[in-house]
Design a protein around this nucleic acid. Structure first.
Lengths: 211, 211
DNA sequence: ACACATTAACTGACTGATCAGTCAAATTTT
DNA sequence: AAAATTTGACTGATCAGTCAGTTAATGTGT
């Protein structure tokens, strides 16, 4: 369990933001451990080593804390795959491969994180705030994936590929493999999930990915 | 809102079981409308047109009602795709196509039902009961899908196909497309999701499915 | 440097609301 | 009339949010 001083640092300016991060991390841990409906302000503050009242000092409400938690998760994910894309070369196949690999990296595809994604997906329909955050994240990503698929299809002469369909199926495979990692960690480990996703790319673009 | 008499029928023998079905259906409706954490015994009984106490007469607890709801959902799904498989011909490609089509049929792929699936997936990790029900359902299905993929790969001369990988990716694509149907019903309607899933089959087995 | 004032951050007991489960009584069915 | 089913008020527990009071950090005057 995290203790108070961990991220407080010199304690001058960034205390407020640091404490907010702590609470968000504690929220992720609590949701991962107990699920959304098992998470309470007490479970979060216990995880953070803080007192109940602190949450309402740093966040206007429990729902606001949850929304910011989802936003932090989405931002982290976005930075992660975007960074992988920036580091990849210009080759469309390499770039697609980099994005997929990023999605199954330990920092992103841990059961802890995936559990939180699914917790929010189970509620997104009923919380416009969650849906808005999720939409913004997905829209951007969908566009990039579609462009990557279009680039590779054009460069590789895959006339039969419809980029929009390919991109949505790629996203679907990734989300679906995340679910298998979450529910059946024994049968579907991260590395195997990545291999499965690569196999999907190979079936789409057989001349550019090993089977 | 459902009214009492709807499914009570002659009211002699099967009243008890009929009332249980009503409560399960009401639970599905409530979870679909309000999410798992927004669902209470009151929201369920209001949906069913019954009183609070009835739930604990027919089910030992709220959790038991939820577990039976998941079981009913899983059973219904299983009967549905198994039935489609039974009606399909002997051709492996046709059989695969039938299973996929069944997964995107209105009775199964409604937002109402999909919302409940995701609600339970978000909690499965923390409720051994949910996980056990889900596991039994998935194990059986996974085995059948794997056999179908193996049959088609052998019959169609797809040496590069690994049935286990193909089956898990197929399941992943289906679950992932369900998520898109749930979150973005405007952009991903049932029919389009089915077309996407068929496109996935076509990329796996290009000589047996139209692109 | 030092004492003191002002602000920021935090605490935890308290409140009203809501929840799941109970149960004696009412109602309906056999 | 006997049994099965349903009702809804009640209970104890738990929850999110509040707030008066405490502690720590910063600023200010001398």
């Amino acid at each position: 369990m995290a203790r108070r001083g961990d991220t407080v640092g010199a304690g001058r300016g960034g205390v407020r933001e640091a404490r907010r991060r702590e609470l968000i991390e504690a929220t992720i841990s609590s949701i991962a451990k107990r699920g959304l409906s098992g998470t309470t302000l007490n479970s979060v503050t216990e995880e953070a080593g803080l007192s109940h009242g602190t949450v309402n000092f740093h966040f206007v409400s429990k729902e606001a804390l949850y929304a910011e938690t989802l936003r932090a998760l989405a931002d982290e994910h976005q930075v992660h795959w975007q960074g992988a894309l920036d580091q990849a070369g210009p080759d469309p196949a390499e770039r697609l491969s980099a994005v997929v690999a990023a999605d199954f990296a330990p920092a992103v595809c841990s059961r802890r994180k995936v559990a939180v994604w699914f917790a929010f997906w189970g509620q997104a329909r009923h919380r416009p705030t969650y849906l808005a955050i999720q939409s913004a994240h997905d829209d951007h990503r969908r566009e990039r994936l579609e462009n990557l698929c279009a680039d590779l299809a054009a460069a590789g002469g895959y006339d039969e590929i419809v980029p929009k369909v390919a991109a949505r199926n790629l996203e679907a495979v990734i989300d679906g493999l995340w679910l298998q990692v979450l529910l059946y960690p024994k049968e579907m480990k991260r590395e195997e999930a990545l291999a499965n996703a690569k196999a999907f790319l190979a079936s789409l673009f057989p001349r550019h990915f090993e089977v």
